[in-house]
Design a protein around this nucleic acid. Structure first.
Lengths: 207, 207
DNA sequence: GGCCTATCTTAACGTCGTCAAGATACTTAT
DNA sequence: ATAAGTATCTTGACGACGTTAAGATAGGCC
């Protein structure tokens, strides 16, 4: 409540502008969406000139890149908090639910993380690393479930498959293509979708 | 090859500007991506003033909305061309492959179709309809596979699950998170990912 | 032939990302 | 302590963008 207004600031130098910009961007992200999030608006929110950000980030892409990296870090932390000691099936379900919940509570951030502004070629190193961290968490989950070494090809395939399913479900729900009925809790919805998969395999499906 | 240059046009009225704009937008989309695709650039490509488009589309959102609708229509057509007479498992695989291929051959269009510019609330009716058409194709595929009426809850769940998996896989590949090895054909890659799922269910996985 | 209206153009506004140049204040060496 | 040096922030400006308002052009209908 000190420097939100136009130019009411006590010190000329702000001090820790970089994290302030990120956090302002983070809070605005869910309001305006990943596309309309503007560097100028973020700077104004912090109470700083539009060009001040350029002394901390190369450009807008780098700023929102760090935002996406923060998202992957939070996702990795959330996934790491899974219960490793239950049966494998439960661990898997739980990780999937954690992933799904993260996407639904941070839809705009999620869309940014997997959005078209970053295709793998041109990513900030921090983002690349954070993404690798999150993916590593998923692979180690799979290794636990399958009781294999985490680099076994089976584990990689399983991780790919489970990630694809959960990511797809989350994306479609966020986009509004699929709807979670209001009275159905998230874990029930996820469970029901998993049953749909099972039905395909068990019945006259893919096998 | 007639009116691409600055203002070299024989007639003042163009005639069928609307489809020309769409097709120009479509061809530019895969070059610049869904975010950077600008109305002005599209107009310039057609050889027309930046504001000419406003006599055919309300704004940029509506233009790219029709672009996305065209994408869903093409996807629906492609899905409808599946072979309905083989065994159910094969039909399912085939539909999944068609979907996956569509996404990979039109990555930017695909990202636009499922991108954050349209969350279900604010969509052009044409887009809504085209999307429904594509989804309907998926559901009827599932009805064939499970030999159930297409509105059975089992079918809806199965469609949700299969769509989620394929959509997730396609999204992650397009984004670059997952990579299809260059010497592996698409159907092999998809098959391998399906096997990953199967492994989870068959082994000590979800069941 | 003359009006009507759809179609396209020019002009302009506000916002955006970004660069260049100047103002300010913290840091460090002397 | 003070002066130099540098990190930090500001002002000013440019081009591209989406969009609106007002004018030019021409095809359709009487």
């Amino acid at each position: 409540m000190s420097k939100t207004t136009d130019r009411a600031r006590d010190t000329y130098h702000v001090g820790n502008l970089a994290p302030q910009l990120i956090s302002a961007a983070r809070s605005m992200l869910e309001e305006v969406g990943p596309v309309k999030l503007s560097l100028r608006a973020v700077a104004e929110r912090v109470g700083v000139s539009p060009t001040a950000a350029y002394h901390h980030y190369a450009n807008r892409a780098e700023l929102i890149g760090h935002l996406a990296a923060q998202g992957f870090d939070e996702l990795a932390v959330a996934l790491a908090a899974r219960d490793r000691h239950g049966p494998g099936a439960e661990t898997l379900r739980q990780s999937s639910l954690i992933y799904f919940r993260f996407a639904r509570t941070n839809p705009a951030l999620y869309q940014l993380m997997f959005g078209p502004e970053f295709f793998t070629g041109e990513m900030i190193p921090a983002l690349q690393a954070a993404r690798e961290r999150a993916f590593g968490e998923l692979r180690s989950t799979m290794a636990e479930v399958l009781t294999c070494p985490p680099d076994a090809p089976d584990v990689r395939r399983a991780a790919r498959a489970a990630w694809s399913f959960t990511h797809g479900l989350a994306s479609l729900v966020i986009h509004g293509v699929l709807q979670v009925p209001p009275n159905v809790p998230e874990d029930r919805f996820l469970e029901s979708s998993l049953q749909g998969l099972e039905h395909l395999f068990a019945g006259k499906g893919v096998g």
